[in-house]
Write a protein that binds this DNA or RNA. Structure first.
Length: 304
DNA sequence: CACCAGGGTACCT
DNA sequence: AGGTACCATGGT
């Protein structure tokens, strides 16, 4: 017999909770009163880093915490992953700067819909759009007494029944028709998101990119952040900047060349490596501008 | 106030 | 294959 509980501590080491929750893979976590408030599987959750692990609090009694360990991937040993990265200077600098950064394992629909809304948007804006979408179309969740209201991420069926104008009211602009059409395909079972768990990565990517507004970048984000395909390597403007500055400072490689490079150079955990590069570049820019000579320090150029 | 943002697409040469 | 305008909106 399990006793139900409202809180626990998941054992975890080598886990930078703040970096993980703010590194542009999930968009709904908010820092309040020294804790991280969010929603997982339609349930309000509050997290806090502790010495031995990650403390979690819910508003409803739990009989188990496997769903949370799965989302946070606390059982993953980070050391082999970091050791599998290439031993070049950019990767070592990224690991030194972001050690403890993790990949989450998110719900496929929320992840797909979120990154559909991410195109050509800053992370702060993506968060605002998604927050508005959840408040308008999600269902209110139980929260602790006196706490701000929280909402579930709206199901595909719910968005499929909305109008494009209603979606545009959430300030998503030209992304609205893509989200609507995708929601209808998912709700109508023309695409079985759960079935992608059993597909080879190429097949899963092929099916995702058939959705309107889903190209290689967004598909790779979903493959990596929801399905756990750790070789999936999303290339956005930041990662592109990292690749060009750190690996190809003198020439301009073609897209095909770049694709081949990222698939062969970063190994079996290329997607993980990509997240370190992404977070490293992003946190490098905002705080303190070191002089240009630092980022021009010669990396080990890949032979090609 | 230009410029750009975890892109994709249609259309051009 | 490789370039470009455009999509809507707001942060920096």
């Amino acid at each position: 017999m399990h006793r139900s509980a409202l809180q626990t501590v998941l054992p975890a080491r080598d886990y930078d909770l703040a970096a993980t929750l703010t590194s542009g893979q999930a968009f709904r976590w908010e820092f309040r009163e020294g804790c991280w408030d969010g929603v997982i599987d339609g349930q309000w959750v509050r997290l806090q880093r502790r010495a031995r692990g990650i403390a979690a609090q819910t508003a409803l009694p739990q009989t188990g915490w496997g769903w949370l360990a799965q989302y946070l991937q606390t059982d993953l040993d980070l050391d082999p992953v970091l050791l599998s990265f290439p031993a070049d200077e950019p990767m070592q600098a990224s690991v030194a700067a972001c050690r403890g950064l993790r990949l989450l394992r998110q719900d496929p629909w929320e992840c797909l819909a979120s990154f559909l809304l991410s195109s050509s948007k800053q992370i702060v804006q993506i968060r605002q759009i998604i927050g508005s979408l959840c408040a308008r179309f999600g269902t209110p969740l139980t929260t602790p007494p006196g706490h701000a209201p929280a909402y579930s991420f709206p199901a595909a069926e719910r968005l499929a029944g909305a109008s494009e104008a209603e979606l545009r009211a959430c300030k998503m602009g030209f992304r609205a028709p893509n989200l609507l059409a995708t929601a209808r395909q998912v709700a109508g079972r023309q695409l079985d998101l759960h079935g992608l768990y059993h597909c080879p990565v190429e097949e899963a990517r092929r099916r995702l990119t058939q959705l309107p507004g889903v190209g290689p970048k967004i598909a790779n984000c979903v493959l990596l952040f929801a399905y756990g395909f750790q070789q999936a390597f999303p290339v956005d403007v930041w990662v592109m900047k990292a690749l060009r500055q750190l690996y190809f400072p003198q020439r301009r490689p073609s897209p095909a060349c770049l694709r081949h490079f990222v698939q062969t150079h970063f190994g079996a955990n290329a997607g993980y490596a990509q997240q370190y590069l992404f977070h490293y570049m992003r946190t490098r820019g905002r705080r303190g501008r070191e002089d240009r000579s630092e980022q021009r320090s010669t990396p080990a150029l890949p032979a090609l």
